[in-house]
Simulated scan of single mutants.
Amino acid sequence: MKPFRILMSSAFMLTSLLSASFSAHSAIAPDRTRVIFNGEEKSVTIALKNSNPSLPYLAQVWIDNDKLEKDTTYFIAQPPLQRIEPNSEGQIRIQPLPGAVKLPQDRESLFYFNVREIPPKPEKSNTLQLALQTRIKFFYRPAAVTKLVDKLHPWQLQLTLSRQNDEVIIDNPTPFYVVVSRVGNRPDVSVSGFKNIVLEPRAHIPLGIKSSELSNTPVMTYVDDFGGRRLLVFTCSGNNCKVDEDKSHDAEKKANK
């Protein structure tokens, strides 16, 4: 999954903007698209790459909670600010704080890891600079939940769909988060009304689509721990739909050819 990027700029006057030269290119990027912090680990290290061939950048990092508010209760990312030379890497270490023991131990918790790049002062005047920010999902996975991970049979196979009136309800009976990027009748197209969702552990929610738009073999795309997109093919009996593991594997093989 591509990182979510927010453009941040310093205050400027409209007259300056009209005459300014404009250039925006992300230089600092993390080495992954999500962070998985297993409960038995003491820390997680993330590499930040400065892809600019000639300019050093400052990299500012912090952790947000699931409401996108800066949070210093459970985890800390260090150093909070560092200089990274051209075509070089810096490292960030995420460590738990004492408050982390208060997090639920029977299910995952969601946070966000943020990186904001700060470019060097421009040599030319009337140059508008943008500080690009990358935000990626950060899942805390307690030790008891980590033990439930089965690489051969991913927990996403336990998802179910049900038709209730003209709504489609998705049920996640697992202690894991599930990121769903697409729901439709074939792998490459979503039905109208569907928006990407981050499905909480043990959630039972409407998908925001009409049940009349789904066939008896709906196809869902989810994002795995490594940012890869995986397919689930459901088979419906009446109003209830379960994942068909064999059809899901066949659909993935076909899609990867």
Rank of each mutant, 00 (worst) to 15 (best):
K2D: 02
M8Q: 11
L17I: 09
L18T: 04
F22D: 08
F22Q: 13
S26F: 03
S26K: 06
A29L: 10
P30F: 07
T33I: 14
V35K: 05
I46V: 15
K49A: 15
N50T: 05
S51M: 07
N52Y: 06
S54V: 12
P56K: 09
D66S: 15
D66M: 13
E69Q: 15
T73P: 01
F75V: 11
F75G: 13
I76H: 07
P79H: 08
Q82H: 00
Q82Y: 00
Q82G: 01
R83M: 12
I84Y: 00
E85T: 00
E85Q: 05
E85F: 07
E89N: 06
E89G: 07
Q91H: 11
I94F: 07
P96Q: 01
L97I: 03
P98H: 07
P98L: 04
G99D: 04
K102L: 14
L103K: 12
L103H: 15
V115E: 02
R116V: 08
P119W: 11
K121C: 02
E123N: 14
K124H: 14
S125V: 05
Q133K: 13
T134Q: 12
T134N: 02
I136Y: 11
R141L: 15
A144I: 11
A144F: 02
A144T: 15
V149G: 06
L152G: 15
H153M: 00
P154M: 10
Q156I: 02
L157V: 02
T160N: 04
T160R: 12
L161K: 03
R163H: 12
Q164M: 12
Q164T: 10
D171T: 15
N172Q: 12
T174F: 10
T174H: 09
F176D: 06
Y177Q: 05
V180W: 00
S181T: 15
S181N: 14
R182Y: 00
G184Y: 02
R186F: 02
P187Y: 09
D188M: 01
S190V: 02
S192Q: 11
V198K: 07
V198C: 05
R202D: 14
H204R: 10
P206Q: 12
G208S: 01
I209M: 08
E213N: 03
N216D: 05
T221Q: 08
V223E: 14
F226M: 00
F226I: 07
G228S: 09
F234W: 02
C236G: 10
S237D: 14
G238V: 04
G238S: 07
C241E: 01
C241L: 09
K242Q: 13
V243H: 01
K247W: 01
S248F: 01
D250I: 04
D250G: 01
E252Y: 04
E252V: 07
K253N: 08
A255G: 09
A255V: 03
A255E: 12
